[in-house]
C-alpha cells in the first residue's frame, strides 16, 4: 500500500502527533511515506527524512493555516489521488475527527478512528486496534476494500526514526470548490501561552476538592513547574470554576498523557473514562476510599493544600 500522512506544524516544528502517524504509516507499507503538510512558506521539511518520509506535498496557502473540515477533506482526497495513496493517516484532533469521514466518503475508503495499533496491514484483511467504550475496552476492527482512512490516537506509539530518505518537496495547490466554504469562520477564542490539554505530555487536574476557583494557583504552580497542561473534572467545569475546554472525562476531553495527576478528584467512572489511557496516573485525595486510587499508579492520601506546594518545590529542586 502507498501511505499518505497529514502533518501539522506548530511554530516551525512538526507536531509529535504527526510523527506518531508517520511511524504508523511505516508499519503499513515497507516503502517510504508521503506527507501532505499545511505549513507556512519556507518551512524546512528536510528533518522529516529521518522518519522515512520521501515526499512532501506542501500546501502553502495561508487559508489552510487553520482549515475547516470540508476544504481539508477535498485537499487530502486530491493529494491521495495525485500520489496514488490508498492508506491515509491523520493524527486524531477535533479537526481531523470532522475531516476523516468526509475524506473517506470522497475516496470510497473504509474509515476507522481512535486507532491505537495496526494489527494486520494486508489489504483485504486490514485490521486495526481501536479504543472503544470510552477507553473501557478495545476492538479489533477489520476494514473492507482496498483503501483506508485512519485517525491515530495520540501517544499510542513511541516515535522512532526510520530508514532515512531524501525529501522531495512539491508545492500543492488543491482546487477547492466554493461549496466547501459553506462554513464561515467568524472568530476564534484560544488560550495562548499555555500547554494545550490534548497535546500535553503531563496533565495536572483539579476537582471539587480544590474548594473553589481561587485556589487554582496551586494547580497552576505545579503544572508550570512540570511544563504541564491543567485540566479539571466535570463538576468544576459545570460550576464555571474552569473553562469547558479543560474538562477531562467521558463527555469532555479524553487525554492520553505520559503522566496524569488528579488532585481532589474522587474518580467517578465518567472521569476515569477520560484518563484511562494515561501511562501513569497519580492521585492526591484526602479520602483513602476514593475510587481514583483504584486506577492510580501512585497515590498520596492527604490535604491537597499541603501536598501541592511540597510537590511543586520538589519538582523545582529536581530541575
Amino acid at each position: 500500500m502507498k501511505t499518505l500522512v497529514f502533518v501539522e506544524f506548530e511554530a516551525g516544528k512538526v507536531k509529535k502527533s504527526a510523527l506518531e502517524a508517520i511511524c504508523f504509516g511505516r508499519q503499513i507499507a515497507a516503502g517510504p511515506v508521503a506527507v501532505v503538510a499545511a505549513a507556512p512558506a519556507g518551512t524546512d521539511f528536510a528533518p522529516l527524512g529521518a522518519y522515512g518520509v520521501d515526499q512532501v506535498l506542501h500546501i502553502a496557502d495561508p487559508g489552510f493555516d487553520m482549515p475547516e473540515a470540508q476544504p481539508l477533506a477535498t485537499a487530502l482526497a486530491q493529494a491521495a489521488s495525485q500520489l496514488g495513496a490508498d492508506a491515509i493517516l491523520l493524527p486524531k484532533t477535533s479537526l481531523t475527527d470532522a475531516t476523516a469521514p468526509r475524506l473517506a466518503a470522497k475516496l470510497g475508503a473504509a474509515v476507522a478512528s481512535n486507532v491505537m495499533a495496526i494489527v494486520d496491514a494486508t489489504p483485504g484483511n486490514f485490521t486495526v486496534k481501536r479504543s472503544v467504550f470510552t477507553g473501557k475496552a478495545f476492538a479489533q476492527t477489520r476494514l473492507a476494500g482496498g483503501k483506508v482512512v485512519l485517525t491515530i490516537k495520540k501517544n499510542s506509539i513511541d516515535v522512532a526514526e526510520g530508514n532515512a530518505s531524501a525529501v522531495s518537496v512539491e508545492t500543492f495547490a488543491p482546487s477547492i470548490p466554493a461549496s466547501d466554504h459553506a462554513v464561515k469562520r467568524i472568530s476564534v477564542e484560544k488560550a495562548t501561552g499555555q500547554v494545550l490539554l490534548p497535546d500535553a505530555e503531563i496533565v495536572v487536574s483539579g476537582g471539587r476538592g480544590m474548594k473553589g476557583p481561587e485556589n487554582w494557583g496551586l494547580i497552576q504552580d505545579l503544572a508550570d513547574a512540570l511544563g504541564a497542561a491543567t485540566g479539571c473534572s466535570k463538576p468544576v467545569s459545570d460550576m464555571d470554576w474552569r473553562p469547558h475546554h479543560e474538562h477531562v472525562g467521558q463527555t469532555g476531553i479524553k487525554v492520553s498523557p505520559n503522566l496524569y495527576i488528579a488532585v481532589g478528584i474522587s474518580g467517578a467512572i465518567q472521569h476515569v473514562a477520560g484518563i484511562n489511557s494515561s501511562k501513569v496516573i497519580v492521585a492526591i485525595n484526602k479520602d483513602p476510599e476514593a475510587p481514583i486510587f483504584k486506577v492510580a499508579d501512585y497515590g498520596i492520601v492527604g490535604d491537597a493544600f499541603e501536598v501541592l506546594p511540597k510537590l511543586t518545590a520538589a519538582v523545582k529542586n529536581l530541575n
Binding site: 485490521t127 473501557k136 476492538a139 479489533q140 476492527t141 477489520r142 492521585a283 486510587f293 498520596i300
Partner: peptide
C-alpha cells in the same frame, strides 16, 4: 465497510503505591 472481529479489556491495574 468495517466489522469488529473481537473485543478485549485492558489488563488489570496493579495496586496503587501510596
Amino acid at each position: 465497510s468495517s466489522e469488529v472481529t473481537s473485543f478485549d479489556l485492558p489488563p488489570a491495574k496493579s495496586a496503587v503505591k501510596i
